[in-house]
Design a protein around this nucleic acid. Sequence first.
DNA 1: ACGTCGGCTACACAGTCGTGTAGTAAGCTA
DNA 2: TAGCTTACTACACGACTGTGTAGCCGACGT
Lengths: 201, 201
Amino acid sequence: MSSDLTARARIRDAAIQLFAERGVEGATIRDIAQQADVSSGLLRHHFGSKEGLRDACDEWALHELTKVSGQFIEFSTLDGFTLRVRLLQSYLIRSILDGSPAGTAMFDRMLEYGEQWLATTDLKVADPRAFVAVLSVMKMSLFTMSDLMSRALGDDVTQPQAWGRMLRASLDLFSQPLITKEQALQAESAIDRVIAGEEAS
Amino acid sequence: MSSDLTARARIRDAAIQLFAERGVEGATIRDIAQQADVSSGLLRHHFGSKEGLRDACDEWALHELTKVSGQFIEFSTLDGFTLRVRLLQSYLIRSILDGSPAGTAMFDRMLEYGEQWLATTDLKVADPRAFVAVLSVMKMSLFTMSDLMSRALGDDVTQPQAWGRMLRASLDLFSQPLITKEQALQAESAIDRVIAGEEAS
DNA sequence: ACGTCGGCTACACAGTCGTGTAGTAAGCTA
DNA sequence: TAGCTTACTACACGACTGTGTAGCCGACGT
């Protein structure tokens, strides 16, 4: 496939793909170089080190993704949500798990955007910060655990068909209350009980 | 700390803790042995290999957790939800990310239980399987990304205080609709558009 | 008293990792 | 043409991994 790109660009693309698939630890320099069809030395020549390569990938993914849209994972604005964009997205989401600065930067942006969104709604929320954090993490989780989702659906969620099915289900989930206020209160007191028991010991 | 346990038990406990913290790849045999205060050879003597150790941890965690409660992550039944249980839980959740058989087994159980739960409610769900899968993944994500949650809340969610705050926020989230039916429909058509555009190319 | 079996350690081995070094070929500038 | 930078490769090094092996030591049965 990729051929008319610079070797440097090919390395970067290969790194983003493999980092996204296996994580930064799981993807070796040699694998990346092989995928880009260059020697591992050239990778080192261009990016200095594995860390340097990851930094370059972080910067590029953030930059490219910001170019496409201000916010990252929002269902309402899916224009330009191409396969390439989804790859960049899954790279950043994966790098969140690996504790990359770019990953946490993206998460911070998600939090910020989430709080803005929350302000526009008339939801009654006791702890906005926690609410937005939980919501953001949950939205991301659909992509961090795509293997599990694919297994549950019996279909690859990185492909358009199952991907749409997953997103539609999440819309279904967010557009109606799952538990009653009574159940919520009951669960809250259960949580209180656990905390009280924990702090006693 | 731990001392009056068998060396074999100490190794198992250390492995569960380190596997949960760093993943099965990230935790080395030598680290586990050191944490258990034994030689790495003894670990090998008892469990044969790293894979054997993980299998033993899987089996033990599943068994212990089943002993406590039939279902794993449910807010309504938090009795006996001790720190030890939470450790076992986070071990299994982490091992889901690593693709362990025990992890997927637990996930399957969650799906099964989720579908039973869904049947007891009068929720209108277009795609029950996908609905339950999304919900299960999202519930788990609070624990898989505890680092991120802690960062967002500015407090360690493995500790009772922030842990309760996180769970309360998730209750808040699940007890009310976040988007209107109109917004959901709008987003659905956006998803359809992306899929159509994708399959055209 | 003696053998042996399980708990336990020390050490060596091969593979893989990221990294470092030396060197080649091509293109640009003077 | 000479000199230098840049793209690129081949290869070796040290660290770390899981694994294999040899052996020590105490308990226990006979």
